[in-house]
């Protein structure tokens, strides 16, 4: 029975059962949803105005930055064209919401409300506004399960953005720490270095922020340095998350969602 499952033969059964289970998850999520709704509808006019103003200024800032970005992207494309290397297709995202449920406290798994109907697939990367969060491991009719980068069974190929040094970051089971166990003592890495996805392994698209190095311990009698880093994504605070479609998967998304909008972000 268990072996059967390891070869994914029982997926249909699990999918069927999950439909019966779905109302329970919804029920558990309900209080959080209600509180959210309540606080939103109860906030005062002044608060809303303040928030509006803040968002407005932030939007302006982002727009200015994105203008510059567009310019840089064009330049980048031109240079790549000169080099004769392949064009990097812009990634697209889909917004998903977390279910407020606890699973195994020893594993860092979360549930999101987007499923195969929305084009979600196994191994799809998930991020929030600040960095990579994890990857989808199960897609069922009522929800999808995501493994966070801090799960002890998860590793992600990363790159130090300062010098391009490539390595692998592994989860530790603590929500605010991942470790880099495979770097030698003399590796050029120091506190404050930013780690971005390297794109190796073909699961995570390259260039997204993952973590910031917080601690480097070089012990001469050990083969590898002990390095820990803090994920930039708000792993236990974000409620709205982004599913990233990159490369060939964009075609899949078109297939299942719509045929409109070729460029930019899609909701």
């Amino acid at each position: 029975m268990t072996l059967d499952h390891r070869q994914q033969h029982l997926h249909a059964l699990r999918a069927g059962l999950s439909l019966i289970i779905a109302p329970i998850e919804y029920l558990v999520d309900l209080p959080a949803e209600v509180v959210h709704w309540f606080s939103e509808s109860m906030s005062s006019r002044q608060q809303l105005q303040e928030e509006n103003a803040r968002l407005h200024s932030q939007n302006l800032l982002m727009q200015a930055r994105s203008l510059k970005n567009a310019d840089l992207e064009a330049e980048n494309r031109r240079l790549r064209g000169l080099l004769g290397s392949s064009l990097k297709v812009a990634d697209r995202v889909l917004i998903a919401e977390l279910y407020n449920v606890d699973l195994d406290p020893y594993k860092h798994l979360i549930r999101i409300n987007k499923t195969a109907r929305h084009g979600v697939f196994v191994d799809q990367p998930l991020m929030d506004a600040f960095g990579i969060m994890g990857q989808v491991i199960k897609v069922l009719p009522s929800h999808s399960t995501v493994r966070l980068i801090t799960d002890p069974g998860h590793s992600i190929p990363v790159q130090v953005s300062r010098n391009g040094l490539r390595t692998i970051a592994t989860g530790t089971g603590q929500i605010n720490r991942i470790s880099l166990p495979y770097l030698p003592n003399n590796a050029d890495i120091r506190k404050g270095d930013r780690l971005v996805t390297s794109g190796l392994g073909e699961i995570y698209p390259p260039g997204y922020p993952v973590a910031t190095v917080t601690d480097v311990k070089r012990t001469p009698d050990r083969a590898f340095a002990q390095i820990s880093a803090e994920p930039t994504a708000h792993l236990n605070r974000s409620r709205e998350v982004l599913l990233v479609f990159s490369g060939q998967h964009i075609k899949n998304m078109h297939h299942s969602v719509s045929k409109k909008k070729r460029k930019g972000k899609n909701k």
């Binding site: 268990t2 499952h5 029982l10 059962l17 699973l103 195994d104 549930r111 399960t145």
Partner: peptide, 8 residues
């Protein structure tokens, strides 16, 4: 199914 563990 609820906890997302191995079926069984």
């Amino acid at each position: 199914v609820l906890k997302g563990t191995l079926l069984g």
